[in-house]
Design a protein around this nucleic acid. Structure first.
Lengths: 180, 180
DNA sequence: CCAACCATGTAAGCTGTTACATGATTGA
DNA sequence: TCAATCATGTAACAGCTTACATGGTTGG
């Protein structure tokens, strides 16, 4: 779904490993104990995904203790992750975009975050507008009230995402100023 | 993911066929031309899914014209659909819940819609509160601002869903009153 | 007659899920 | 010592995607 065969789960793993070296078990715990749980869960997906990343030489495992040890990123892994983080924001799949945003914090690249959030806001607004225009179009007006209400749910979600992005920029800018 | 092996796509097909008998091609067109496109798209998923429904005797195909003809629901299919529509609203997966809401319009059962929307609002609010509590908890406060902003996106989306449900009840009640 | 559209399917491949299975370590 | 937790995996299966393949009908 992008670079050769890396799934959102794969990027989630790369991002978490970049934050700090972790064991497979530790990675699982993150998914189980935080709101990141959307990205998979059980061993059946995480261990094979890690194996795939290892075979692609994006991560390596070191044995300081028991088990396989802690995974850490290879230079190629870091590069792959960085490339993904810097990809243009086009996909209307906001949940994957949000994953990217979450991992941008470890770059400390303020311009990247700013640019991403602006782009995210545009994408979300565009989708919201598309639904609004659909509702106002002949095709939309022909729908039952019930159907229009259903579509409105999607419209509001996109709108909420756009509002969030604007708020996120403000929050971050405020903090950045304070730290100067 | 519920009744023996019927996926969200399967229910989407049942719901659309209930609205009116349709050919496989017509069903595809709905996914391609409306905001319902989240539920699959291409022949590779829809035709096998239809075959599965046919084998389960939930739909039948009649040949009025070319091709296989129009699919319509069997009594068992209608019952399966109705049971699904009346299931308690528990899943935090709002997109599937929304699919259910969309197809409730063909029941014209106002109490069902009312009950669903109230329950949906509770579910969404509960999820929003869970995220808010997480953010306020020690674990949440320990997160970076960036992480907290990421979680906030989810919180706002749930909140928007809850607001939508309240608005939807109002809109429907208003229309129902007007029709009396 | 040819393009566009109606109409239906198959095959390979990838991902993920559930359920099962195993064993080491550590604290009470 | 025994339960909990750390830690890693596998096997069967379901579902979807992409890409390919085929043929009929209709309007210009």
């Amino acid at each position: 779904m992008s670079s050769p065969g890396i799934t959102p789960l794969g990027y989630a793993l790369l991002g978490l490993i970049r934050e700090m070296p972790r064991s497979g078990y530790a990675l699982r715990s993150v998914f189980e104990s935080t709101p990141m749980g959307n990205y998979s869960s059980s061993p059946g997906s995480i261990y094979p995904a890690l194996e795939k990343l290892r075979k692609a030489k994006l991560v390596e495992a070191r044995q300081p203790g028991r088990g396989k040890g802690l995974y850490h990123l290879t230079p190629a892994g870091l590069k792959t992750l960085e490339t993904w983080l810097r990809r243009p924001t086009v996909e209307p799949d906001l949940s994957v975009e949000l994953l990217r945003f979450a991992f941008m914090q470890f770059t400390e690249d303020h311009d990247l975050m700013r640019g991403f959030l602006r782009s995210f806001a545009v994408t979300a607004s565009t989708q919201a507008d598309a639904l609004r225009l659909f509702l106002e179009s002949p095709a939309g007006s022909a729908l039952s009230l019930h159907s229009r209400i259903s579509v409105e749910h999607g419209r509001r979600n996109y709108e909420a995402s756009a509002d969030w992005a604007a708020w996120a920029i403000e929050s971050l800018e405020t903090q950045w100023k304070r730290k100067e």
